[in-house]
Design a protein around this nucleic acid. Structure first.
Length: 636
RNA sequence: GCCGAUGUAACUCAGAGGUAGAGUAACGCCUUGGUAAGGCGUAAGUCAUGGGUUCAACUCCCAUCAUCGGCUCCA
């Protein structure tokens, strides 16, 4: 008799050694149909594994989150089998599951997306055949014998321990694999090959170039469709497209990786920074500015010359070497070091919207998301050790305030001491505990990344979540135990002695360029009124009303509203359409009625029109809305 | 930097060994309109850059530059 214990604590007895399928079937046929694997005494295994002793079991159905990974892993096998059918000389390497699907790295002739239909067709045959995926334990020598003509698999086997090696078989295909897998290939019914790229064996440029074919799979065609729709939606929101269409920014060959912001882009930019300054002033920050070019001595002192040089733009002037700053901190250190400080001055919260340059590899540049020149909304906070918790907590609260204005959710991650690091155990202990205490006081859940901190100190990263559910790391709070030391920064304590201040670097937007790009995609180009480059557009009904429309525009501009007039000799319908396509939040139509009665008709982006709004009502409401930086425009 | 794809008018894109086309935008004329495209017409391109092959190259070949997708995920 074998006793099986289920997660809810119930126990069921079986004769002989049941498989997972037997257990599932004993509960219901429906359950058995939807089971893909099981967790047996804490390990994920195949459903058709035999259970030979009393065990804890949890059946994994298509609804469980582990199931998708298992499915995708099986899908990778199906793809590999199809490719071997079509390309006899292909040599398989690895085929893992990744965040949105799976890939397989294969040594084969180059393929392109044009080859996908025929590979997919072959995969469909395999799926239709519902081939069972069967696990087989093999010895190391058997495995090596099987793969004697497969150099990559041989190499992989040599790293494995004898007795733990398993093969999976489906029809004429066998692959070295840890598993587990879905019971048969029929589960892989909703899949799609996505893209192909080059990748190196073991990610090593000196090794063979492989074809990496990406695919994705779901249990349900509906889910696949939803995922493809999400990708379409993301594509439509692409900030590079919207940036061109809305005339916000551009890139030029003359300065690769460095954005040019147009007049409308700068309106958005300035709105972001005005807001930033308002919040920071209220949170007790001052603002400073340091040069973008500083000499080699400084970079040697800060350690950048030694550790960051390959990313720095360097220039020789009057026989001296200079570098354009890749970070703002060394300049900030000079400012602090300018004069002696008392403990009574601390904390000092010194912000700097600094322009930094980093020479990133040409292949990694990507719109505003990855650039070579960008602005950081930096700040350095200098404090006494007992201020750490309060200061970090203050940064977290400020960050939350600012993100919430954009409707961005976020989560926090704490990174602790890495293997290679400077500073004593006591210093790290104090610093890390300071961050932890602040996080606990803040009260939100946070993830801990052990050993992921910078060599000079622990850090908290803030990951935002945009309207499509994508996450981006923007904010960061990094405690720095290196720079105050290197620049010999001190303050005079109560005891009259010199002490080393604690220093943190922190950003909220991170890279303003990148944050800008994220917001374009987050809002899909439809910025809230307070950020919109053109907040209102006046549409005269006919040419006679153009001069009155200009008067209206001027009266609105006097109140600070960014306003345009569409004075083209076009139909009203056409002007409305164009204004809508430019996502202008307030569309004001001027006809004879409006002119005579001194009112406005206000159309908003939702297509609603309100007639007969007096100028005073309009301005009162709009200006209040902007002042509060509301997201939804719903008052008209 | 590496692999692959792409680069044609301001934008989106088609085309192709015999010297370039559409839609939108721009400009002009007509229309003077009531909330998502009124009509007709005109002008616009060193076909990314530099070499090469050819009687002839925007097209084929080579190189360069830029942009995009990958290059971290370990059976």
């Amino acid at each position: 008799m074998i006793n099986i214990t289920f997660p809810d604590g119930t126990i069921k007895a079986f004769e002989n050694s049941p498989t997972g399928s037997d257990v599932a079937k004993s509960i219901s046929e429906g359950l058995a149909r939807n089971c893909v694997a099981m967790e047996l005494n804490g390990n994920l295994v195949d459903l058709h594994s035999e259970i030979t002793q009393d065990s804890q079991i949890r059946l994994i159905t298509t609804k469980d989150k582990e199931a998708l990974e298992i499915l995708r892993h099986s899908a990778a096998h199906v793809m590999a089998q199809a490719i071997l059918h079509l390309y006899k000389d292909a040599k398989l390497t690895i085929g893992p599951v990744v965040e949105d699907g799976f890939y397989y790295d294969i040594d084969m002739e180059p393929v392109s997306e044009d080859d996908f239909p025929k590979i997919e067709a072959e995969m469909k045959k395999i799926i239709k055949a519902k081939l069972p995926l069967e696990r087989k334990l093999v010895s190391k020598s058997e495995a090596a014998e099987f793969y004697k003509n497969e150099p990559y698999k041989l190499e992989m086997i040599s790293d494995l321990e004898d007795g733990t090696i398993s093969f999976y078989e489906q029809g004429d295909f066998t692959d070295l694999c840890r598993g587990p897998h879905v019971p048969h290939t029929g589960f892989v019914k909703a899949f799609k090959l996505m893209k192909v790229s080059g990748a190196y064996w073991r990610a090593d440029q000196t090794k063979a170039q492989l074809q990496r074919i990406y695919g994705t799979a779901f249990f349900d065609k509906k889910e696949l469709k939803a995922y493809l729709h999400f990708l379409e939606e993301a594509k439509k929101r692409n900030h590079r497209k919207l940036g061109t269409a809305l005339d916000l920014f551009s890139f030029h060959e003359e300065a690769p990786g460095m954005a040019f912001f147009h007049a409308k882009g700068m309106d958005v930019w300035n709105a972001l920074l005005d807001y930033w300054r308002e919040e920071h002033r209220a949170a007790g920050y001052v603002e400073t500015k340091t040069p973008i070019m500083l000499n080699r001595d400084l970079w040697e002192r800060s350690g950048h010359w030694e550790n960051y040089r390959e990313n720095m733009y360097v220039s020789s002037i009057d026989d001296f070497e200079y570098a354009i700053k890749p970070m703002n901190c060394p300049g900030g250190m000079l400012l602090y070091g300018l004069k002696p400080h008392s403990y009574k001055d601390l904390p000092i919260r010194a912000g700097e919207v600094g322009l930094v340059h980093r020479h990133e590899l040409s292949g990694v540049l990507s719109g505003l998301f990855r650039v070579r020149a960008f602005h950081q909304d930096d700040a350095h906070i200098f404090m006494t050790p007992d201020q750490i918790q309060d200061e970090i907590l203050g940064v977290l609260k400020l960050t939350e305030r600012i993100y919430s204005t954009f409707g961005l959710g976020f989560h926090l991650e704490l990174s602790t001491r890495p293997e290679k690091s400077i500073g004593s155990d006591e210093q790290w202990e104090m610093a890390t505990e300071g961050l932890r205490a602040a996080l606990d006081a803040y009260g939100a859940e946070y993830k801990i990344n052990e050993g992921d901190g910078a060599f000079y100190g622990p850090k908290i990263d803030v990951h935002i979540k945009d309207a499509l559910g994508r996450t981006w790391q923007c904010g960061t709070v990094q405690l720095d135990m290196s720079l105050p030391e290197r620049f010999d920064l001190t303050y005079i304590g109560k005891d009259g002695e010199k002490h080393r201040p604690i220093m943190i670097h922190r950003v909220v937007y991170g890279s303003i360029e990148r944050f800008f790009g994220i917001l374009v995609e987050h809002f899909a180009g439809k910025f809230p009124l307070w950020m919109a480059p053109v907040q209102a557009i006046v549409l005269p009904m006919n040419d006679e009303l153009v001069s009155y429309a200009n008067e209206v525009k001027q009266s609105l501009e006097k109140e600070g509203l960014r306003t345009e007039v569409d004075d083209r000799t076009e139909s009203l319908k056409k002007k409305v359409r164009d204004a809508q396509l430019n996502y202008i939040p307030l569309i004001l139509t001027i006809g004879g009625k409006e002119k005579d009665s001194g009112t406005l008709s206000v159309r908003t982006l939702d297509g609603k029109v309100k007639y007969g709004v007096t100028h005073k009502d309009f301005l009162d409401q709009v200006l209040a809305h902007i002042k509060e930086r509301k997201q939804e425009l719903d008052m008209f």
